[in-house]
Each structure stands twice: as C-alpha cells, then as structure tokens.
Amino acid sequence: MLFYGLLFFLFPVIMSENKLISVDFEIYGNVQGVCFRMYTEDQGRSLGLDGWVKNTRQGTVIGQIQGPQDKVNDMKVWLRSVGSPSSRIDRAIFSNQRDISKLEIHGFSTRY
C-alpha cells in the first residue's frame, strides 16, 4: 500500500519530466562566426533533443528545440549562458513554448 501511495504522489513529477515540449529561441550577442550553430547542434544531440538552428541576417541565431521538458530546460540554460567557446551571449529569448503530443522534428540540424 505504501508503494502505491508513493507512486501516486510521484506520478505528476514523473509525468512532467517526460512531457514533450517545443520552444523557439533567438540568441543575441557575438554568436555568428564563432561556431555557435555547430556547438548548439552538438549540445542538442547530446541531450537527445530534436530541433534546428540557423543564422539570421540581423546577426542573431534562431532555432527550435523539442523533447522532454527537463532536457529542453537544460538546453535553455546552455543557450542562455554557455554557447560556443568564442561566443558572447548578451540575451536569449525563448518564445512559443507549447506542449506537444509527439515530436514534429526528427534529428537536430543546421538550416541555411
């Protein structure tokens, strides 16, 4: 009985960690010409996320990431504060975060 009570208590936590989400991002700073896209793609793959990354004409980097909420949150921290070794991140904007029932993107790629 104790096991079932504990399971009932932890179920919302387990489910929220496994919930799939999608979020768009835009990164400002010195993020072009410093391998930011390559490092972003590598980091996304290492976290098991799906998505894409792309340079903009305005000098920012945009993209979308999809996957389990906890891993997407880890990627958001990385995008906000780590980036590539030669980058300087001034600001990270995350938008259009939404729950998804299944992945809409497969793999992680750089778009041109």
Rank of each mutant, 00 (worst) to 15 (best):
K71M: 10
T110Y: 00
K71P: 02
V31G: 10
I65W: 00
I89A: 12
E26F: 05
G83Y: 14
R88N: 14
E17F: 09
R88A: 12
L10F: 14
K102V: 00
G67S: 08
D99P: 03
I14M: 09
D70P: 00
I14G: 13
L79E: 11
D74W: 06
V53S: 03
G83K: 10
I100S: 06
A92S: 15
L47D: 02
G63L: 00
G44C: 09
T56Y: 09
M38P: 02
L79T: 15
G5M: 08
T40I: 14
M15A: 15
G67K: 04
M1N: 13
I14A: 12
G67W: 02
S46A: 10
I65V: 15
M1I: 10
F9D: 11
V61Q: 01
G67L: 13
K19Q: 15
K19R: 15
S86K: 15
T40K: 13
L47Y: 11
I27T: 01
N30W: 08
I27L: 01
R88H: 13
V61H: 05
D74V: 02
Y4E: 15
D42H: 09
G48K: 12
G59Y: 01
E17M: 08
Y39W: 09
Q58F: 06
F36H: 09
D90Y: 08
G5K: 13
L10D: 10
V72K: 01
G67F: 08
L103N: 09
G33R: 13
I93M: 07
L2M: 03
Y4C: 10
S95Y: 07
V61F: 03
W78R: 07
S22I: 03
V53H: 00
R37A: 10
G51I: 03
F11R: 14
P68G: 03
E17K: 07
I62Y: 08
N30L: 12
Q64T: 10
K76Q: 12
P85M: 07
G67E: 06
G51P: 04
N55A: 06
K71R: 14
R57F: 03
V72W: 01
P85D: 11
S84T: 04
G59M: 08
G48W: 04
D50N: 08
D42F: 12
S87V: 12
G59D: 07
L47N: 12
P85L: 05
V31I: 10
D50Y: 12
P12T: 11
K71H: 10
S101I: 07
R88K: 14
Y28L: 03
F3Q: 08
S22W: 04
L49Y: 02
R80C: 07
E41R: 03
I105N: 15
L103K: 15
Q32W: 00
I100T: 09
V77G: 02
I14S: 07
N55E: 06
T40E: 03
C35W: 11
F3M: 08
E104Y: 05
F25I: 00
N96G: 03
S109R: 12
Q69L: 13
S81E: 08
